[in-house]
Design a protein around this nucleic acid. Sequence first.
DNA 1: CGCGCCGTTGATATTATTCAAGACCAGTGG
DNA 2: CCACTGGTCTTGAATAATATCAACGGCGCG
Lengths: 257, 257
Amino acid sequence: MTSTASHTVSSHAPGGASNVLTIGESRAHCAHCNMREICLPAGLAATEIEDLHAILGKRVKVHRGEALYRAGAPFAALYAVRIGSLKTVVLSDDGREQVMGYHLPGDLVGLDGMGTHRHESAVTALEDSECCVIPIGHLETMERLMPTLQHNLHRIFGREINIDHGMLLLLGSMHAEERLVAFLVNLSARYKARGYSATEFVLRMTREEIGSYLGLKLETVSRLFSKFHDEGLVQVQGRGIKIIDMPRLRLLVNRRS
Amino acid sequence: MTSTASHTVSSHAPGGASNVLTIGESRAHCAHCNMREICLPAGLAATEIEDLHAILGKRVKVHRGEALYRAGAPFAALYAVRIGSLKTVVLSDDGREQVMGYHLPGDLVGLDGMGTHRHESAVTALEDSECCVIPIGHLETMERLMPTLQHNLHRIFGREINIDHGMLLLLGSMHAEERLVAFLVNLSARYKARGYSATEFVLRMTREEIGSYLGLKLETVSRLFSKFHDEGLVQVQGRGIKIIDMPRLRLLVNRRS
DNA sequence: CGCGCCGTTGATATTATTCAAGACCAGTGG
DNA sequence: CCACTGGTCTTGAATAATATCAACGGCGCG
């Protein structure tokens, strides 16, 4: 992980001249991070953000396909996604793989380790990504000193639970079509909240991963995309998505039976 | 576990008003509660448990079929189940109901309110039940003063997330049969952890509720119970369950497609 | 260029749902 | 005591939804 990577990825890094050495060089600059409003420091005063910086570890870069952490790894930190996207995956005993989360910049990952102090699932980069490391020991200390941070953390835990409940509702009570629509609508909202286009985005998961995430087979996902495309709801070109008729999409999520 | 109800509530006056009845007398006695080892105070020193008592609200009694809280209610407290059993339910926009949790004594419920400060789901008693109330404001204060409590809470949050992930795995990748077996095996383990029989227990949910919980229809649940019964895996008599062949059950959970 | 992964599409099989009928059971009132 | 009632549970047959199997096209990459 401390591997001083051979090349810089930096789609964001200003000025090429800046340190090629390591991403750890600069601690995360929450104050200037685009995601500060939806990430951990949301609502913190400037001075508090400084305090928070004091406990941040170095950032880590995760190449596409590589793991931020694997199932069974000791729980040492939470991670805030800064750039890129990642998936949370669990492997059942018999080798079946299930995608349980799809994480965009600003999301906090790693919470699955809090219960047992070991990560129960693995997190893998879907593209070259970068995460801020928040060592858990330091975080707990800081939390005791900063009620706002404590509160933020609780909010984030709660949000995580709500997200999971949303997925339970999706998997437990929706048809294939509704699931995929809900997935698209949800993604749209999340991209919008992050300042990206709500109508045009690129999926970072294969059909198989999307299927696993939604409890469907990859063929079903593919067929549905084609269907939506034909019906003029969404333009689909491989992983490129352009939402054409959002109102009608929303109707589809809650159709009866 | 018929918890010495020496101080049970004086049956309230007729003309019942609120569905939730607070118990005036005794604060919860964690120190003597059968569930202390799996509940919030697990691992706390005796003096710490006393401190924890200081912030506990009154206990509440919830009659079968009534709500501990409803969706949309302001988030004011967490609740520890003391006696009985409850379900967590969400109602989707179009009126579909989905059971998302089945709670036994020792479980902490109400965490779904942490994200937005409103409960996103409702919790309803499946039988006459009793919960300890832990006001959230007091809890956050206490948490700052007691690292052990803070840590316990984090563990519980994490456990909750792991439980949800388990359900996601179940709903996302298991067949009907596997789901129902996993449900039984899980229940068995939870009853065992609480000092009850691991092989004989009574379901507190209807077939429909179980189906909702597992993403199946009630008829499917019924058929599968009959099938398991015929195969000598489980004796099923209405809601009475007696596990006959646990090893074979375990095999069924992870059968390859 | 050829190879491997990914995505699409069709035909078929399987699984679970839906619709329907009736049994069971506890509680209620005549 | 019995019949009645409403909710729950079981079971069967028909149906719909999704998975599976299979073939092929495309794209990126070494």
